[in-house]
Computed example of a mutant assay.
Amino acid sequence: EGIVAVIFKYCDDHKLPLLDLKDFKKVLQYATGEGKKEFEESYGRIATSSTGAILRKVIELEQQGADLFFGEKSFDVNDLTRIDEEGRGMISIIRLTDIQDRPKLFSTFMLSLLAEVYATFPEQGDSDRPELILFIDEAHLIFKEASKALLDQIESIVKLIRSKGIGLYFVTQNPTDVPDAVLAQLGLKVQHALRAFTAKDRKAIKLTAENYPISEYYDTKEVLTSLGIGEALISALDEKGRPTPLAATLLRAPMSRMDVLTAKELEEVIDNSKLIQKYNETIDRESAYEILNEKIEKAEAKARKDEEEEKATTRTTSSRSRRSSSRQNPVVKVLTSATFIRGVLGILRKAMK
């Protein structure tokens, strides 16, 4: 977390846009590679082992499709609060069926969505009506295989997001799929039938029953297993924020078609969407990846030039040294010749004797 904070600080200080995962990876590699000295001078030493661990996590997300999913264009949460020509709110469906079998990517997306909503919407306090309601289906996928850090972040956002006028509904088959810290923040609880086929199921039903207010009228564990289609146990909050007594209710079936859209119907919906042109486009602007690559290329070119100049200087020095050694110093030459002559004369003198 500390290293990631340093990476963001470096990019802010040097005006390097972080727009997608490849930008983040590039800065991470630069911090312990070509830019190691630069980082150490301003931000302290960054261990290669730490950046390696972060990089492996990023690659794991990339393998699940996050490189495209978190690229541009970024999802605009204000599109969730659109209204039609008559001033009525619109229901937006974010269809994530292609990533539901990728739990890390799914939970990371949901955290980023909630964080973006929290950062974008202003404080409202106790407003008359919510600004936005989010229903998160298959909610267990958010928490499945999520790290403790991720769970802590989700818990914090769930606690704070209500002040923004945002309502959250986690839809899942069993309340035990949701962590206790998150479950404790949910005021409205609607529980359909649970079936006990195993000892583990009976334990889950007991835990579920304990999540509801104690009732003098129902044996909660028994009612949960006897509910039929269109029946549910409900507990909400009253005007003063107190849990209402538990009530077994009948639900009115929705007056609409309850079915999966065919491929043709889905295509028609997408083609008629006003948002299709906004999001159905891949953009790869100049960002940290391109800027750092250019910086590295310039540094490498300069290094090659310096190396060539150094080699040229070395060759010149070596050439001069060879030339000077082949041309003897006149004084040395005279002394050498005199020594030779003296030696020859000495031999001749001995021979003449």
Rank of each mutant, 00 (worst) to 15 (best):
K353Q: 09
I154K: 02
R162Y: 04
P130G: 03
L224M: 13
K104N: 07
D284M: 04
Q328C: 03
G52L: 05
F170I: 03
S325M: 10
E239Q: 10
D126T: 08
E216P: 10
S74I: 14
P103I: 04
L188I: 10
D79H: 14
G33N: 08
L114C: 02
L105K: 05
K159G: 10
T314I: 09
L68N: 12
E123P: 00
E216M: 13
N78H: 13
E310W: 09
K22W: 02
R349G: 06
Y279W: 13
G33C: 07
D271I: 15
T339Y: 15
T244E: 06
I166Y: 12
I341S: 01
R342P: 01
L111W: 07
L207D: 05
E286I: 13
D13S: 12
K22D: 06
T176C: 03
G125M: 11
T249F: 07
A299F: 09
E290T: 06
V269I: 11
T316W: 07
D201R: 08
Q124A: 07
V331Q: 11
K144H: 10
A232F: 11
I347D: 05
Y217I: 05
E308H: 12
V4K: 15
K73G: 14
L292C: 08
P179L: 06
V77R: 01
K274I: 14
P245K: 07
P103Y: 14
R129C: 03
V190Y: 03
E307V: 02
G346Y: 12
V77N: 08
E62L: 05
D177C: 00
K311R: 09
A299R: 15
A299D: 14
E60P: 00
A209L: 04
S325F: 05
I99R: 06
G87N: 06
L345Y: 05
E1F: 11
S273M: 12
R323F: 00
E239L: 07
F340I: 08
E86C: 02
P175E: 00
Q191S: 01
Q100H: 01
F109C: 02
F24S: 00
Q100N: 01
P213E: 03
S156F: 06
F121H: 04
K15M: 05
L335C: 11
K203F: 02
L237A: 07
E309N: 14
F24L: 15
I94W: 07
P245I: 02
S321H: 06
A247N: 11
R162C: 04
E308Y: 04
D152G: 10
A247E: 15
F70G: 01
Q191H: 11
P330Q: 11
V6H: 02
F121W: 03
T97V: 09
Y289V: 01
Y10V: 13
F121I: 01
M110N: 08
S226L: 10
K278D: 11
P175M: 00
L292D: 13
D180V: 14
G165F: 02
I7E: 05
A196Y: 00
T225E: 11
L261Y: 06
L96A: 09
E116W: 09
K26R: 15
K37G: 09
A115T: 10
